[in-house]
Amino acid sequence: MDWPRYGRVVLKPFSSGLSEEEWKGLYETFRDPEIAAWNGSSPLRTPFWLFKRFVLAETKRKDRLAFIVLDEKGEYLGTVELYDILPGEQATLGILIGRKDRWGQGYGTEAVRAALAYAFGPLGLKRVRLRTFAHNLRARRAFLKAGFREVGLGPGPKGKEDVYMEVRREDFGPEA
């Protein structure tokens, strides 16, 4: 299997199928109130079976590629996706590290690097962008370390200030 990888992480495509442990990790990620707050949403209250059905439907969209982030032992860490994909042009990146015991250890940065290498390599995109809360300094530092640059500030949909970031293919090197 030639899945995107960088450092200690591997990005397993949802299209490869998820193990029951990966599904449980993903479900718990979306049910966690702290993670939901950092994502600007409410904790998931949907039953597991309905959550799986919704996620599987979302992964079939043509403008989205979703991956499970696995650590060096092959264990679930979180999810990263490229969405709103305009072939040959751009995509938006989203990431959630659901294993809070792994926060601050560089796994998120490595997952972003793997996703960017895939976006600029096999996908042939020119730009990847994202939006994060201005007060989420840990995420901002991780995105900067992974190669993004801040391109603007503005009000977000939840009334908090957002930071808009992007990275262009010509500015992305193999090492951060």
Rank of each mutant, 00 (worst) to 15 (best):
R8E: 12
L65Q: 11
V9I: 09
S16V: 07
L125Q: 06
Q90K: 15
G108L: 01
R129M: 08
L125T: 06
A57F: 10
P87G: 05
L116P: 01
Y83N: 13
G74E: 05
I35V: 14
F67W: 15
S41I: 12
Q105L: 15
E34I: 09
K73D: 15
A117F: 14
L44A: 06
L44S: 13
S41F: 13
W3H: 12
E20V: 05
K73N: 13
L56I: 08
R61Y: 09
V55F: 14
Y118E: 12
Q105W: 09
T79C: 09
Q105A: 14
L86Q: 14
R127F: 08
L77H: 02
G104D: 09
E89K: 13
G74H: 09
L70Y: 04
R102S: 07
S42G: 04
K62P: 12
Y27E: 06
L125D: 07
D101Y: 00
D71V: 10
V80P: 02
D2M: 03
G94I: 05
W38P: 01
V9H: 00
I97T: 05
R31S: 12
G124C: 03
G94V: 04
A114E: 00
E20C: 01
V80F: 04
Y6S: 04
G40F: 07
L50N: 02
G17L: 01
A117N: 14
Y118Q: 04
F14V: 04
K100E: 09
S41K: 08
R5S: 14
W3Y: 13
S16P: 02
L123E: 13
G17D: 06
E81I: 02
Q90R: 15
G88N: 05
L11Q: 03
A37E: 13
L26Q: 05
V128L: 15
E81L: 14
A37P: 02
G108P: 07
E72M: 11
A37S: 14
W49G: 10
A36F: 10
G98A: 08
G7C: 10
L86Y: 09
L56T: 07
G17M: 04
L116E: 07
S15C: 03
E58M: 11
K62F: 10
A91W: 12
V128M: 12
P43E: 07
Q90F: 13
T92H: 13
A91H: 06
F120M: 10
R113E: 06
A114L: 02
E89P: 00
A57H: 09
L44T: 11
R61I: 02
Y118S: 05
R64Q: 12
F120A: 08
K73Y: 11
A119R: 04
T79A: 11
G104E: 11
L26G: 00
T46Y: 05
G124E: 08
E110M: 12
A111H: 02
S19F: 09
E22S: 07
R64T: 13
E21P: 00
G74C: 05
R8N: 08
L50Q: 13
L50V: 11
L50E: 12
S41T: 15
L11K: 00
